[in-house]
Design a protein around this nucleic acid. Structure first.
Lengths: 342, 342
DNA sequence: AATAGTATTGCAAATGTTTTCATAAATTTG
DNA sequence: CAAATTTATGAAAACATTTGCAATACTATT
């Protein structure tokens, strides 16, 4: 009923309405055990009546935590990151934090700008994707002493604490799977590795693993494709119509692998009889394509959830201890790869 | 060099370092034209040296805008919403705003909680997905007089300003496309319509359009599937193995349509020769499946970008005028539908 | 050279909270 | 029943900034 629109609803309005001092109102929120249940009831009634909503900006000014965590991703609009974002968001929400989200489109200077922007908002922590960041970003983080976390990648040498998977290992597992199946003519389709350490690590590990078995990849069987099913399809079409067609395709991620699969289908190639395809990532949907995509499973959801949980623990802890977590990888053999040794 | 870690870098530290008053420092940021270029230079140097970063929390307390916009979506982890989120984020970023993001998992009570949380952070505006919200949410929005916007859906009767597509029309277009091609035995696979006005509007329009042509759908040809390729695939498998198989499948969204497509492939049905399939949405990837999915295109990116642009305009405007925008729909005929009249 | 105007800066109040300290009231203890 | 504790509340300072107003210094005009 009584919807007091006159006089904005701040803590002193509530205090007045409940005939107590602002301090008591504040205490009702922050240390309810210190205030008499009866007064508490009065105050809650006043809060209801005035439609009062606490002002975190004012709290933040007091050195209280802002209750926000900033997450900067390369792009939101990708199966893979959206899964991590979702899990991270849910996870920090459970701990009472809100998510400030920004994307930089694989431009590390924009990443810097986003981190700065978040710092203005006095986020309680900043999470970044990957381990490669501009010097400016690293400097900013250490200088401002802001809790920071790298997610998605794991590496021993990471300067930042990190929660993620070892992309070297991912590349190696994919290569070894194909080698185990007897493949020696292997085509590679990877994204641009510049400013994308994930792709870079995977690719170099693939070359290492192949090299160890004396397998090399001719130039015409190694090509680049952006993170797009349709463009990957084009790239795969080109690769598969070279004079010497490989027996297997190793793709830098599942989006590219899906494109490759569609390209093969378009060319009338049977998968896996005529061509094996393996991806990396195990995105939502990879299990459902027909035939099901063989891939290296990166547990995006686990990474996001774990990162959120550990990071909020870290932030709220009295004596914060650095942590890094390597999440396990697993080769999920579905129907797009088969043994050559038939 | 001089990295003053002692004494936190606030505006008075900067003032002291530059030998001016805090007011002047503040003015350098907010009204640079009011301060002497020479002093400005001094101040900027001090800012650099101390690594000072403005504190938006303190600004916000002054009635200045917080520079944040809250977006509450049902879920982040979906091709469709992640595209909207991306566009919206980019769009508001251009206007200098940061994005607070939360998801509620199709639970309108959680949506309310998220909006409240954002209100505590004193967001400058709140954007929600869809037109159906709890009474509590609506009350909160009007009571707090917070600028609010509904995205994704458009409706004349929306109490909130909205930017989106008319889902009735989407359903109707899909149905009419199949009718035009001569289909009369049409199967429907839709998500749960409870708490999902998008699906609800589409489905009722489909029934209307079919009914106008005297077409009705037997119960065994109408089934539900959640927003998941694999589960939709299961549902479609069941539907397609009923005694009387329909000649076309109309799916509530493209994810379901993809599941249906894979189901058909699994059953050895040729698409579109044996079965036509149409989706709604035109998600990233729908064009790339093999065969390319016929669908009703909902311009997610346009919606997100437009919403962001108009909403920030609205928020920063001196005399804000309400607005609603209906985005155009289009039937994209690819390769999963064909005419029966051969 | 006096006046009027303009450009530049500082002072102090205000913003909405939290928290320390002090005080008063109520309860327990001997 | 007085003294010692405990419980409940309020007053006031602090947090980092912005801005209206006042003061000063400078420039241009006559």
């Amino acid at each position: 009923m009584a919807n007091f629109q006159k006089g904005k609803a701040d803590i002193v309005a509530v205090a007045k309405a409940a005939k107590v001092s602002p301090s008591t109102v504040s205490r009702t929120f922050n240390h309810p055990d210190l205030v008499n249940p009866a007064t508490r009831k009065k105050i809650n009634k006043a809060v209801q009546r005035l439609g009062y909503i606490r002002n975190r900006a004012a709290q933040t000014m007091h050195g209280k935590r802002s209750g926000t965590i900033g997450l900067v991703v390369p792009t939101i609009n990708h199966a893979i990151f959206s899964e991590v974002i979702q899990a991270f968001s849910d996870s920090i929400d459970k701990a009472g934090f809100s998510l400030l989200l920004a994307s930089h489109g694989y431009d590390l200077d924009r990443e810097y700008a986003m981190v700065r922007k978040f710092l203005e908002h006095r986020v309680d922590g900043v999470a970044l994707v990957g381990l490669e960041h501009s010097d400016a970003t690293n400097r900013l983080i250490t200088q401002q002493k802001i809790p920071a976390l790298a997610i998605w990648n794991y590496s021993e040498e990471s300067p930042l604490p990190c929660v993620g998977a070892d992309n070297h290992l991912a590349g190696r597992l994919a290569a070894e799977h194909l080698l185990d199946l007897g493949h020696r003519d292997i085509g590679l389709i990877f994204p641009e590795t510049q400013g994308n350490d994930r792709a870079q690590h995977r690719l170099s590990a693939v070359h290492d693993a192949l090299g160890e078995q004396g397998v090399s990849v001719p130039d015409e069987h190694e090509t680049q494709a952006p993170y797009s099913v349709s463009q990957a399809k084009q790239a795969a079409l080109a690769l598969l119509t070279t004079s010497t067609r490989p027996t297997a395709l190793l793709c830098g991620n599942d989006v590219i692998a899906q494109g490759a699969l569609f390209a093969a289908q378009k060319l009338g190639l049977r998968v896996p009889e005529d061509l094996s395809i393996i991806g990396i990532g195990d995105f939502k949907g990879s299990a459902d394509v027909e035939p099901g995509l063989t891939t290296i499973r990166i547990p995006a959801e686990t990474i996001g959830a774990l990162a959120g949980e550990k990071f909020t623990d870290f932030i709220t802890s009295d004596d914060p201890r650095h942590f890094s977590i390597r999440c396990d990888l697993e080769c999920v053999a579905r129907q797009t790869t088969r043994s050559l040794a038939t």
